[in-house]
Design a protein around this nucleic acid. Structure first.
Lengths: 340, 340
DNA sequence: GATTAGCACTCGATGAATATGAGTGCTAAC
DNA sequence: GTTAGCACTCATATTCATCGAGTGCTAATC
């Protein structure tokens, strides 16, 4: 167990290192107001903290820097996560509300806002449309050989795709098919739509059966396309200001990783569902993010579970501030009503 | 006027420098098979070329590197632009054709392909929907307070926006409005749509005038949103392999610039309409691209003018290869029929 | 027993001095 | 007009000494 003083010192080392990105030495610490011990005393405690694996030295004659274990301890014991600053949250809410009544714009704004507040990079995953329910499906001929399939959900989400016919479609068949599908499928979650269309087709025997089935296929194929949830990146260039990313060796993997939209989406979707979760350094298991920490949280908007937002910074990130801002943003989103 | 030998030397210097990114000296050149002169002779010609501003030396004891003027001369006189390799073009066409019948996917593929072929970064601007003509407009209520405005064009392009009502909309008014708008506006170019809606509204006197006008406004506001043409980036990480972008000072402006989608779009749209145009170094007038050259070209797809594609590399880019590949890609696109 | 002063020691960072070598410009010979 | 020869330049790499922040240990002090 750590003594009171060791705790103070650990906290001081991490706070200091977070600010300066420089190893911190015993003399520097002894000059702080909240640490009125001699540098020798601090050195002794530092040696203990090092034995416990909480801090480490880059080399003999440098100061100490926190280890990942140290950060973990800091985050788990020394960062208070639950305190919501009502005023600040309200203020954030105002800034979000001002932006839009459309959810996609709102999420983008939230991502930008969070990265502005923290100077880290943020990634926000929008609503997964698979849970949306079908409001209307439509097939609209453009000319003899092409048409547009439109799918609108109860949340106002729209998917569309241009399709090509082998032969002209009879307008009445199109209309009939569309009406039929709408009657049968309204309210179906998008995720089940493809399956459901298949079921409906098999139940049927109609005139124009052939054309009918062909259209069904077209529509089905539209639904089948993997429509990834919308992804927003905020403050990508913040990374350039981080001292640990001033060399290509560190910068390149990060930038390459963050530009890979699909991988990013998969990663965000794979995160455990929690309110606020901090993953430190190599904990996240991603090689490109070895030297990064991530604060993630699911968020709700207007009462409904919506998506995930993540904040990525160097391992030496300001966890206290980051966690607080994250908390305020998701609280502000939670309180935001879509219909203004 | 340049002598035959000076031309040979200029070409050799540029070819060599493009390959190695190192200043090239007289001794290196004299060892080439196609330059059977002594290093002293070459030095004399180099001095002349330098006087003409075609090459320059980074410092006294280094070799020569091409100046922007030199590159300009090289591109204008020593790169043949019109030769299309039928086989290669056909092959590219096949690779594109395999990908999709949907234009947006196709453009994305073309951008990726071009960056794969050249190892430079490419940017492609999709069709500008402002020229598309309205095929259908629709307003679809989701619940009492929200609806989706849908706009579909003759090219299969879809725009949509969620709108909020103050009060519930009567279904028959909605239907009436939509029918009216479709009758009047079908075939209108998207760019003029907003204006035209305004005109139509002012001509009218109907029951439900108020709700009617309100809807019109909603639809108008949807159209008014600046919907940028679709933009695709290919091979962004190629920049990491360029020796001139191995330091943050050079890399950062480039990456920050290329990530700014809106600015990129404006820039591409502002380019002069031409088949293939090469802009060298500071010619492009963009600070972030001081040390870059750009090969741009408008392209057509399936006969219709479509958009712009650009290839961005260091000033020391392989112009010959770049221009050739660009030519092949736009030729392949031109020959691609959308309906497969 | 806990704290602190004192001191030898470590080791990265900084900077001056030096060596290296690729490349040039000029001159004189071919 | 071309080439060999040579003095000169200058960025780069290397070596070496110095500096100083920081440590660990020991002995004195509270």
């Amino acid at each position: 167990m750590l003594t009171e003083r060791q705790l103070l010192i650990l906290r001081a080392i991490i706070d200091d290192y977070i600010q300066t990105a420089q190893p911190v030495g015993s003399r520097t610490l002894s000059k702080r107001d909240d640490l009125s011990f001699s540098s020798a005393t601090i050195r002794n405690d530092m040696a203990d903290l090092e034995d416990l694996g909480l801090i480490e030295k880059p080399h003999t004659s440098a100061g100490r820097i926190p280890s990942e274990v140290g950060y973990r301890y800091y985050v788990d014991h020394l960062v208070e996560t639950k305190i919501i600053d009502e005023r600040a949250t309200y203020h954030l809410g105002e800034r979000l509300r001002a932006s839009a009544q459309e959810s996609e714009v709102l999420i983008r704004q939230a991502a930008d806002l969070l990265s502005d507040l923290t100077n880290y990079t943020t990634v926000a995953l929008g609503p997964n449309s698979q849970m949306n329910r079908l409001a209307r499906i439509d097939l609209m001929p453009l000319d003899e050989r092409r048409g547009v399939v439109l799918i609108v959900t109860d949340q106002g989400h729209v998917e569309h795709r241009t399709v090509v016919f082998d032969s002209p479609m009879a307008p009445d068949v199109v209309e009939q098919t569309v009406r039929f599908l709408n009657n049968r499928l309204k309210g179906t979650p998008l995720g089940q739509l493809k399956l459901r269309i298949g079921e409906e087709v098999s139940k049927l025997h109609l005139a124009h059966q052939e054309q009918f089935e062909f259209m069904m296929q077209l529509i089905q194929s539209t639904v089948g396309v993997h429509h990834p949830a919308s992804l927003y990146l905020g403050g990508k260039k913040n990374i350039f200001n981080q001292p640990e990313f001033q060399t290509l060796d560190t910068l390149r993997p990060f930038l390459e990783w963050i530009d890979e939209q699909e991988r990013l989406t998969d990663w965000l979707e794979s995160l455990p569902n929690r309110e606020i979760y901090v993953s430190i350094g190599s904990e996240n298991g991603i090689v490109a993010l070895q030297n990064c920490s991530v604060i993630t949280s699911d968020y709700t908007l207007d009462g409904q579970t919506f998506g995930t937002i993540a904040m990525i910074g160097p391992t030496r990130m300001d966890y206290r501030h980051g966690v607080q801002m994250m908390g305020q943003i998701i609280e502000a989103l939670r309180r935001t009503k879509l219909e203004e």
